[in-house]
Design a protein around this nucleic acid. Structure first.
Lengths: 133, 133
DNA sequence: GTAATAATGATAACGGTTATCATTTAAGGA
DNA sequence: TCCTTAAATGATAACCGTTATCATTATTAC
């Protein structure tokens, strides 16, 4: 049976306190300031467990690049800037969400599959990078 | 300047001859039958180059799981079965494609970003796994 | 044919993540 | 409260897909 641990609580809190999409390593650094004895494996283990429980989101990135985590489980899309690599959230309103889900379900129907979830990452240039030019 | 190599040609051909989404390792095995001296690094190098050139697609999978490649560059979505992990293609017709692009562009606008491309993976249960039950 | 240099093949190195294992600690009785 | 048990931890080795290195080979322009 699952057991309470101070470490897991700290990890979840640390993630929720961030507005960005930190890596396990970034969270490890944050938490080390409060609990210097924590091990990196504990951070990975708990992030995996929290993800399994549906308490956090995970954004799987490409090989050799650290996965990103997200404490906000409200469904949303991600946008990754091709120039600065930053990941931003895109929240849809209920109508948009519903329409999108309907479309995706139709797409899955094309191959006779049952649609459950989707992983959508838009790519392009973020506002900051565009304004820089 | 880029130079012709027998190896690159073999790799591209091997990929196009497959209807699935092989890993670099799988292609290496295929090609080794024809050219037993080829090195695994050459396969990775050329797949990366072909991807950069837009001649093939790459499906980035999670850490520790090999990336998949796709010789069909016609734009399409991917569907990954949550039970058997198989990745299938979903081809949209022109109208569907256009509507989807328009929507995604609107979504990027929400955060003032310029939309370029998207990575969409639908997940659920494939036809085969559903029929098994 | 020759020179210049891109591509190759063998293999070491890399980096994020996971496995291992001895130790610590939470939780449910007695 | 003390005991028992087994889940969770922390340190670190191992893992594995991929990339870097470097001497050698092969393509291209002349």
């Amino acid at each position: 049976m699952e057991r309470y641990s101070k470490q897991r609580e700290l990890i979840l809190t640390a993630l929720r306190n961030r507005k960005d999409h930190p890596t396990a390593e970034m969270l490890y650094k944050d938490i080390s300031k409060i609990m210097p004895t924590i091990g990196i494996a504990t951070v990975y283990r708990n992030l995996a467990a929290l993800y399994e429980n549906g308490q956090i989101l995970k954004i799987e990135t490409k090989q050799g690049e650290s996965d990103r985590f997200d404490g906000n489980i409200k469904p949303h899309l991600h946008f990754q800037c091709l120039e600065c690599n930053k990941i931003e959230d895109i929240f849809l309103n209920d109508k948009q969400n519903e329409e999108l889900s309907k479309k995706l379900k139709d797409f899955a129907n094309i191959i006779d599959a049952e649609f459950a979830t989707s992983k959508i990452v838009l790519k392009g240039r973020c506002k900051d990078c565009r304004d820089k030019k």
